[in-house]
Each structure stands twice: as C-alpha cells, then as structure tokens.
Design a protein around this nucleic acid. Sequence first.
DNA 1: CCAAACTACTAGGACGTCCTACTAAATACC
DNA 2: GGTATTTAGTAGGACGTCCTAGTAGTTTGG
Lengths: 177, 177
Amino acid sequence: MAPGIDSLSHMARKKPLSFDPIDEASRQWGRRWGAVEQMRAVTSLMRAQQIVIGELDEILRVHGLTFARFEALVLLTFSRRGSLPLGKMGERLQVHPTSVTSIVRRLEAAGLVTRTPHPDDGRAILCEITPAGRELVERATADLVAADFALRGLTEEQLRMLWSVLQPLRHTAGDFT
Amino acid sequence: MAPGIDSLSHMARKKPLSFDPIDEASRQWGRRWGAVEQMRAVTSLMRAQQIVIGELDEILRVHGLTFARFEALVLLTFSRRGSLPLGKMGERLQVHPTSVTSIVRRLEAAGLVTRTPHPDDGRAILCEITPAGRELVERATADLVAADFALRGLTEEQLRMLWSVLQPLRHTAGDFT
DNA sequence: CCAAACTACTAGGACGTCCTACTAAATACC
DNA sequence: GGTATTTAGTAGGACGTCCTAGTAGTTTGG
C-alpha cells in the first residue's frame, strides 16, 4: 500500500468507463472458466480496498500519516499504558513483524511514538505513544469519522453485512478462534 | 501487495488470538469516537484483502506469477488480438499507468508477453501475450478455480452479496458510470 | 549450570501501488 | 504549416507488505 494516494488524480481526468469493468470481465470469464462468482467477488474486494485505502491515505496526508500508521497509533491509544512491545502490536494489527518495525520507525521519526528497551525482556522493544501522538490521533480520527471512513454511501445495514460476510473469511484464515 | 506471501508462515506458529481483534477494537473505539460500523467495516475490508491476496499469490507462486500479473495476462487473453496498449490495460485493470509498466516489464522478463511499438501510434506500446503466456494462464487459472479464489467458505449468496455491497462503492469512486 | 531451543527484533530485498517529473509523439488551433 | 496542448509511456522515489537470514536475549533441559 501506499502514501498519499489520490485515487482521483489520474481517474478524474479520464472519463470513467461506460461499463463496470469487473462485471464485463466476469462475462468473458464465464465463457471459459468456472468460479465466476468467486472471481467477481475477489476482483471487487481488491479494487474496493484500493479505493478505500487511497481515500483514507488522502485524508490522513495532511496529518503526515497513512492508514497503517494511524492504526498503530490507535492501538497504542487503546492500551493501558500507552505502550506495547512491537511483537504484540503486530499480533493485534495482524501484520508481519517486519512491517511493524517499518511503521514504528516512521512514527518515531515523526515524534509520535518513542522506542525504549523493554524493562523485563531485553529482546523486546516498547513502543510508547507521545503526547503529540495522542493529539494527532484525535485530530486525524475526527477527519476520518467526518468522512465516514470513505464508506459514505453504504447504509448501516450494508456496513454490517460487509463485516459479517468477511468475518468467516478472517476466521477461516486463522485470525482468531 | 506483494510476491509470494505465505500468510501462514508466521501465523501458523503463533496461536490465533482468542478473540476477534477487529470486534474487540470496535468496542474500544465506540467508547471514544463515532462511526463504529464504518471503522469495523473498513478494518475488515483491509484485513480480508490482505488474507485473500496472500493466498492467491501463494497459489500463483509455483507458476512464477502474482495476482496482479495474472490479471494482466487474463486481460490480454480476453482481447481480440491478444494485445493491448499499456494505457488501455491500466484503464481496464484500474491501476496507475506506472503500475502497468512495472507489471508488464516483469511479464516480459518471464517471456509471457512481448512489447512492440504500436503500429498506428508512435507513443504507444503494444503488449501481446505469447503462447507460453496463454498456456500459463490456463494452468494458473485451473489452480485458482480449484481453490475457489481463496473464498472457500463463502456461499454463492455471500459472494453475490459481497460483490453487490462493494459495487456502489466502486461506482461512487468513479470507476464506471 | 551450561548448551540447545526459542523468541523479539533488525537488515536487506522483492513486489505492487501510488506520485512527481520528464520525453516523445499525436492532435488542435491558429 | 507551425506552434501549443494533450496523450503514452518511462524514470526515480516513497510506502506498506511480505520473505529470508542473522543477532541478541530468554527459557528449557539435561
């Protein structure tokens, strides 16, 4: 994923397609292969994620954040002491350990978190959110909420439906028991 | 996204969480901020996409492909002459022009497509799928279909629901009219 | 009590995505 | 026709994600 992504910068100029490219592709797909519904759902999922992450990053750009970094900050905000070992963060955020290192490094460079050795475990690093980090989270959150997390247009029912349809998928993948 | 991603490599070892981290976060979220349903839906969307792309890339890895490259090959397969200008490909695949350059360069390096100057437009490059490319698409597709595009576990109804919920989102983003 | 196994994190690299220039060719407009 | 604008693609860079390999600290077992 990426930094400030303005999904519209190159889309806005060029006229949108006069047809749904995914729906069109699914028709051609069906003539040759199977699993049409799956193919259509997967492609939609990929594209929708791309659209949403792009809009979220666009909103967060003025705060010098990306959605990945925002999520990490929020996680720290939710923790009792405002700090967590990196490994724990990766577990909760469900990203690879090395991704956490990358994210935290940038947050630290921006003065939003500090990295200190874990007092009880010499291997671990404690990541703690700074006052500046807490303030930024509040401002950034307000913007995201105001924009309905780029999901304006979906009804409450559709939002719940989206979540509930994806939940078994996450469960099957072993995200939780 | 990425290359051969084995979502299980670091997940399999560590026990899955005993709770749904997204559901848990949404509870904490609700105590402070609004748009809980949106936040939960967005987080689910992000994570689900990550899971699916990881499994798809894993399946395609034995063929030396990623899902992005696979999609490009399929698009060429669907075209009349088996060739398209790069710009057209980006339009259909709905990715940035520079992403197409990157994808096609790797496909060319693998001998799956050729790049030739467009006969009628000196600015454009025609990307054409090779016989090896066509054969590979068939094999890779068979594997993806056999794996239900990593969506095993979702019913036909859920698949249609997923697509239909995401369609207005894509439409609002200006993907099509 | 010391060696073996495990755990937490970092280093370096691949990939796909985006963005901002920049070049070259085609088209539009005097 | 000749210049100005638009369009197609490339170059180089940032970011997040993954992976493999390696280091240092902790825990386990004999």
